[in-house]
Design a protein around this nucleic acid. Structure first.
Lengths: 196, 196
DNA sequence: GCTTTTTGGCTATCAGCATTAGCTAGAGCC
DNA sequence: GGCTCTAGCTAATGCTGATAGCCAAAAAGC
């Protein structure tokens, strides 16, 4: 039995690749073991079970997504930064659908590392929004709104929620422009809350 | 062996209840069988396997969600209709988290009934947006944007994506006001596409 | 009301999965 | 070269979805 040269890192990365290629639900210890050329129980030398493996994929994705957002926004601010971040966000989800799906599992509340890593993408969006001059008491709400819009579009797109032939790039562009406009006039938006 | 009085409808409704109470992932034929007091294989007399059961829960949820949206918007138009629809949307997802989770599975392309039922909620939102005077060439994009925002918020909320203590109702209200404003000035939003 | 048919329940069985226990051989260290 | 550590293995358990085939309860026909 020659050794396969596995490490926790290699296993997690291969799991992420499997997720992207076959779908997050296709990530099983059995399928991953077959992929890396090892018997299923051998994986336990590197990973603490399926749940932990999923978490590892999620952490990997979170870190990569944060990096993608950072790379897209560096050197920009305001509306151009927001547009670049939005494109990078969707681009990452399309390039790595399995990893993006892995992000949807909420980390356990006592998992401090996961909490920390999960804050990465959010902090980039927060930095982008800071360029719009939104008040501190409003920043959290604005970030939540932006995250909702980006994630919602990407998630619906990935799950076949948009079935009409109209161009998805255009739809996404309009969504993003709507956010640019909302953030530029956020005081106006906030003033209207509760009008209904 | 007395009969349990099951029918496909009863089974689907009990499955939906189980999803809401224990989570969508907790829906297994074994757990459902135990819940309705029957051996697991007996369920096959009423439902064509786990995949079909999940689809049934999704269809039930889609129909209920459409009904909730219709009920909330009847007699209203414009911004009040949009606010009412948004509240009903989130309210349904919170009241029935398992059913809402079931909606995320894309129906098979050849499943015509599912396609039809899935169009229900979308058509209500489309009717609401018609009150904003958005051009036909823009309607699909506007609806996609709205769906993204509502679904994204609700999905992140349901999956523990919002961890700060700030009030979620307020965040959602601001998101919705942002959409109201965007739809009232949609020509402006559309004109900006591609500025970046 | 009795018989016949239909059908909704059952047990038995199988295959695939995650997981644990315990064994073994390869790689590095003295 | 021998020791130790560990990354692999096989075997076994218990859960899941699913199929096959049996049997009794309900329904239908007369």
């Amino acid at each position: 039995m020659p050794r396969a040269g596995l490490t926790p890192r290699v296993v997690a990365e291969e799991a992420a690749r499997l997720c992207d290629e076959e779908g997050f639900d296709a990530l099983t210890l059995a399928s991953l073991a077959k992929r890396v050329g090892v018997a299923a129980p051998s994986l336990y030398k590197h990973v603490d079970g399926l749940t932990a493996l999923r978490r590892d994929v999620a952490l990997l994705g979170m870190a990569e997504l944060a990096e993608a957002l950072r790379g897209a926004t560096v050197g920009r601010s305001g509306a151009p930064a927001l547009r670049a971040a939005a494109d990078a966000y969707r681009g990452y989800a399309r390039a790595h659908p399995g990893r993006y799906a892995a992000l949807q599992q909420a980390p356990r509340p006592d998992d401090e590392e996961a909490q920390r890593v999960a804050a990465g993408p959010v902090s980039v969006l927060a930095a982008v929004l800071r360029g719009f001059g939104i008040g501190d008491d409003q920043a959290v709400h604005a970030i939540r709104a932006l995250r909702s819009g980006l994630h919602g579009f990407v998630h619906l797109e990935a799950n076949g929620g948009f079935r009409l032939p109209e161009d998805l790039d255009e739809s996404y562009g309009l969504l993003v422009e709507g956010f640019v406009r909302a953030f530029e006039g956020w005081a106006d938006v906030a003033a209207r809350t509760g009008d209904g």
